[in-house]
């Protein structure tokens, strides 16, 4: 070759590697981000219609609607990432209403400077989780905030589901004598997140328990079990979910700590930094309250699903004092469970 042709000095601008404020401006950058990242990953007829919203028919039954905002640091962690959490969390909230998840919306707040490759990974993870859940992301939005005003990515997902039965699932349906079932061991998600933060200098094989719960709920409903209440364990851990149910239902709960499984790495981390595993976050565990007479049937149905293969009975509902959760400790003595105060901090004392 003899020399540069005139046009090689003036190449077309390469697509940006990082999020710019203009990606949220509604103009051509916004459109190119949509075409490049979101459209190929989430492709489905309702989304591809490019309307202001999605218009669809609901199957017969009652509809359930839920919404949640997702933030986490680091954005990617062992066994999961923010994208997967944003799908599983909202689909799980629908499942806890006894609703089969149908459609989701996704709204992104991106921080200026975020690597687009990171966003692409999160979006691919969302698309994978959505396929797994059998749902479609049918509408969405993107905004960009200045560098320093966000934590990389915030995602809000809302979900619509259909309730195909007549059970009034909720805390109000729990009755004294009912059995309290737990779908598996606790604390994995929070422990995996804490362990992945550099500041603690920990090396573990801990992975989040982040998972879709609808298959387990579907199994309970398919077995025609009169499920009273479902509650997924999230930020405040098992203890918080129990206290909330007791308060919302106006009943008392008696729970046996010795039935609650905590894996060794979760225990090790909790001992090391002084946390109570009952207050550590989960993303793939739930509580199920059923009449005592059907508790064994419910356990059998749950154990047939991979996500709840280690389900156990941890206690029962009692009439009073309303709002109180008592826990039988490892040595068989009793204590009362409370809501935690503020964030959990590593302690030395």
């Amino acid at each position: 070759m003899s020399g540069p042709t005139p046009f090689e000095d003036c190449p077309a601008p390469a697509p940006p590697q990082r999020i710019l404020l203009g990606h949220g401006g509604g103009g051509s950058l916004t459109r190119s981000l949509y075409e490049r990242v979101f459209a190929p990953a989430f492709a489905n007829p309702l989304l591809d219609a490019r309307h202001d919203g999605a218009v669809f028919d609901l199957p017969a039954g009652r509809a359930a609607l839920t919404t949640d905002a997702y933030v986490v640091r680091p954005l990617e962690f062992p066994g999961g990432d923010l994208g997967r959490m944003a799908i599983c969390g909202t689909a799980n909230d629908l499942a806890m209403c006894g609703a089969r998840p149908l459609h989701l919306s996704a709204s992104f707040v991106l921080e200026e400077g975020l690597e687009i490759a990171v966003l692409e990974r999160l979006v691919a993870s969302m698309a994978g989780a959505a396929r797994e859940a059998g749902v479609e992301i049918v509408t969405g939005d993107t905004k960009v905030v200045e560098r320093g005003s966000g934590d990389g990515v915030f995602i809000t997902t809302s979900g619509v589901g259909v309730v195909e039965h007549t059970l009034p699932i909720g805390p109000g349906a729990a009755r004294p004598g009912d059995a309290v079932l737990l779908s598996g061991d606790v604390g994995r998600h929070g422990a995996a997140i804490m362990a992945s933060r550099e500041a603690l200098g920990l090396d573990t094989d801990l992975r989040t328990d982040c998972a879709l719960l609808w298959p387990a709920v579907d199994a309970l409903l398919a077995a025609d079990l009169p499920v009273a209440c479902l509650r997924d364990l999230t930020r405040g851990g098992l203890a918080t979910a129990l206290v909330e149910i007791a308060r919302d239902a106006g009943v008392a709960l008696a729970v046996d700590e010795r039935q609650i499984a905590v894996s060794n790495p979760v225990r090790g981390l909790c001992e090391l930094i002084g946390l109570d595993p009952l207050y550590v976050a989960n993303e793939g565990r739930f509580l199920c309250i059923v009449p005592e007479a059907r508790a064994e049937d419910a356990l059998r149905a749950l154990r047939a699903c991979p996500v709840s293969a280690n389900a156990v009975r941890i206690g029962h509902v009692t009439a009073s004092p309303a709002g109180r959760v008592t826990l039988k400790s490892a040595i068989g003595s009793e204590r009362v469970l409370h809501l935690q105060t503020g964030e959990q901090l590593p302690r030395i004392c």
Binding site: A195, L200, G201, L202, D203, T204, D205, L206, S263, N264, P265, R267, G268, L269, E271, L272
Partner: peptide
């Protein structure tokens, strides 16, 4: 040294 606490290791 590296010390193991039930599967969690720390220096």
């Amino acid at each position: 040294g590296s010390v193991d606490f039930g599967g969690v290791r720390r220096e």
